[in-house]
């Protein structure tokens, strides 16, 4: 196992709302390996996006990092704890966009509406590199060509509203990769796109990863996308990672009852059996169950244990699982 690029330990990001404290991320442990893709899988509201934003420290108020460590290996080999950096200070800004870049879910609204895509990209390059504007422009054109935007010399002046959804997401990828980051965080980058475009974008991201050797943290709720792109998978439920393992282990030997239930809820063509859904619904964020958060919906829950004592993470052959059944 190579040294990790990013190690997140016991990350907690809470939102202090007038109604109470919402513990969106409540003790997340994750490890990202250089050059590999870690998919973070979970339902809406499980804290996967907040985890991603916590890494770059761009969590909107009233959210705040409460505790935890995020150990990031700098290009010079030194280790920085992202959690301890002030969120608007120069130290984290030097890492954002340069060492860790991010792609967002909505290509329609994630690009500035009245700035040309060329300006938005070359501005990022100029922010992190002491080069001339002309050179930044030629790098921008090269980047647009790499992400498969036709006629990049002309498209550099295009505004987001002049591009289709797929082209915008390509522009967004070009923006994220223009400084050759070591880690790309992709927050559901294909959710807003139609299926054909989705496949094209995934292919593109895999190809670019192979060229640049960057690591990816891929946030998604789509098991198909996970199978397509991930090396490792972390399954999240209610602000915690319940299982982390290799992609094969997740699909062929899932350990956690939640992971198993998720896999059973995929419709299979040709099957006449009734589709199994996970019973109950996600608890209200302000009313988290004591003990294991999944226990009220778990068929194998052990009364007196699962509903009172929070489980630790136990090692498995392919990773770790947070469940009393695997103690």
């Amino acid at each position: 196992m190579p040294d990790p690029l990013l190690r997140i330990e016991d990350l907690r990001t809470h939102f202090f709302t007038p109604e109470g404290v919402v513990k969106s991320v409540d003790g997340v442990d994750l490890t990202v390996t250089p050059g590999r893709t870690l998919a973070v899988l979970g339902e809406s509201g499980c804290g996967k996006s907040v985890t991603a934003r916590s890494i770059l420290k761009i969590v909107d108020r009233p959210g705040r990092l409460v505790s935890g460590r995020m150990l990031w290996t700098r290009p010079d080999g030194s280790i920085a704890d992202l959690a301890s950096l002030p969120p608007t200070g120069p130290a984290i800004r030097a890492i954002r966009g340069r060492e860790i870049a991010m792609i967002f879910q909505e290509p329609m609204t994630s690009l500035g509406p009245i700035t040309s895509i060329g300006d938005q990209i070359s501005e990022t390059i100029l922010l992190h590199h002491p080069i001339s504007k002309a050179e930044a422009k030629s790098r921008t054109i090269a980047m647009l060509r790499r992400v498969g935007i036709p006629d990049p010399e002309a498209r550099i002046a295009a505004y987001p509203f002049q591009l289709s959804g797929g082209m915008r997401q390509r522009a967004m990828i070009a923006l994220a990769l223009c400084c050759a980051p070591r880690l790309l965080i992709a927050d559901e980058p294909t959710t807003a796109l139609d299926v054909t475009t989705q496949a094209n974008i995934l292919d593109l991201m895999r190809a670019l990863q192979a060229e640049d050797g960057m690591a990816m943290l891929f946030i998604t709720h789509d098991l198909g996308v996970v199978a397509e792109i991930a090396d490792e998978v972390a399954v999240m439920y209610l602000g915690r990672v319940v299982e982390q393992a290799s992609v094969d282990a997740i699909f062929h030997a899932p350990r956690h009852p939640y992971t198993r239930a998720l896999l059973r809820s995929i419709p299979r063509p040709g099957s006449r059996a009734r589709l199994e859904a996970i019973r109950g619904s996600i608890p209200h964020p302000l009313a988290r169950p004591a003990g294991c958060a999944f226990a009220p919906r778990c068929d194998q829950a052990i009364p007196g244990l699962c509903d009172t004592t929070p489980p630790d993470a136990y090692p498995t052959e392919a990773g770790s699982v947070r469940c009393h059944l695997h103690a």
Partner: peptide, 27 residues
């Protein structure tokens, strides 16, 4: 101020002041 493109600008590493004037204020 709370549009996704502002978050994008922040994630690029821009300072709060320059991203404020460059993106949301212009719109």
């Amino acid at each position: 101020l709370y549009r996704p493109y502002v978050v994008t600008a922040r994630a690029k590493g821009m300072s709060e002041f320059s991203l404020l004037l460059r993106y949301p204020v212009r719109v």
